[in-house]
Design a protein around this nucleic acid. Sequence first.
DNA 1: GATCAATATAGACAGTGTCAAGATTGCTTG
DNA 2: CAAGCAATCTTGACACTGTCTATATTGATC
Lengths: 212, 212
Amino acid sequence: MTNTSPEPCQSSDKPYHHGDLRRQILDEAARLLKEEGEAGLSMRKLAQNLGVSRTAPYHHFTDKQALLCGVAEEGFRRLREVVRTPPYVKGAEISEASVRVFVRRYVQFSIDNAEYYELMFGARLWKSQQLSDSLKTEAHDAFKVYIEQIRAWQQSISNSNIDALRFAQVSWSTLHGMSRLLIDGIYLDVSAINVMSDTAAKMFWQQLYLPA
Amino acid sequence: MTNTSPEPCQSSDKPYHHGDLRRQILDEAARLLKEEGEAGLSMRKLAQNLGVSRTAPYHHFTDKQALLCGVAEEGFRRLREVVRTPPYVKGAEISEASVRVFVRRYVQFSIDNAEYYELMFGARLWKSQQLSDSLKTEAHDAFKVYIEQIRAWQQSISNSNIDALRFAQVSWSTLHGMSRLLIDGIYLDVSAINVMSDTAAKMFWQQLYLPA
DNA sequence: GATCAATATAGACAGTGTCAAGATTGCTTG
DNA sequence: CAAGCAATCTTGACACTGTCTATATTGATC
């Protein structure tokens, strides 16, 4: 995140070619997003903070949109790791407690990386019709991993009768909805996060145990 | 929505005082939002479309933010009506079918009024720290009505053991999450809306029936 | 060492929100 | 009915935005 990389050719004056600009742009964009919100992230300010001309970033990202895609992509990579690391052992029975941990972790991620999350799932990105292919696959992969999780849970319960895909969609909706309501400042009662998460986990758990 | 109101004083030239501007601003804002999205809604274009100077709207709304609050407020009034009109008779038993109708109606509302919904629940509004009091109460009322619904459902089931507030929060999260994923263009499979809604309804229903 | 593509730059344009100062109007009060 | 006042509308201006074009500098390649 912090970019203290020494300039490749450290002449007294700034070198004409930056060398590491693309990486630094992504980092600074994430920083700006975190500190000042989406409204505070502008191409010009970005360039200025990096000590570079206003149009320099356009040689690494065709658009502001493309830049946002780049940032969001990194967010999805992080999210996938969160989803992929459940507290259960493959093949073993899962417990309600493990579902609880899973839910809490998802929500916690969305809160800790609120700006990322907002960008990743914002209409700005998905309705733009020019979101990069790499972003699309990255996001798709994240959801695929999620479905795999559900499927593993389901298989660990012998008599479960749920449709894994449908359940994945709906449960993800719940997680996403909670996260957004919290992030966007609609549910202000942050102290209730854990209770809400546990309530959701309980609901999921009972759903998983639906007998045939 | 349509404003075909005849001008109060219809002289040949435009009258200096518009007379009905505030109302027309709100309508045109909603229209612009619907047709061109949030990016296409600017104070200047708004004024131009209404044949009025760029700063005229500022005499009716201190801010662009204030205008958005005004539009969102109307959205919440509509939403409240959707939530308030369930297909059940007070005191009578509810059925899974009635829950299904309820879920479908909520999601349908969010899709039909996508731009409203996006505005109503956007971080832009809720994090601004200057959202109007009337908006706050309007939104609060909508959620209160929702809780009342849950409570009524609960009471119609004799042996229900759920915490109405918690369940309201989580189930609303599910509805909100589904709506946003659909609206924001992340779930592109619109044909699956009804199946997803029904899956969610089933989950709610089973949760409501939690025995003590 | 010349050439070329990659990378950086300044200049310009249309668009934005919004502040300040002045013009026009309708309502109120003497 | 006239005066005045507050509400409403206007033009002008400022700083800011994304992004296009044309130009300059560089590192790598033949």
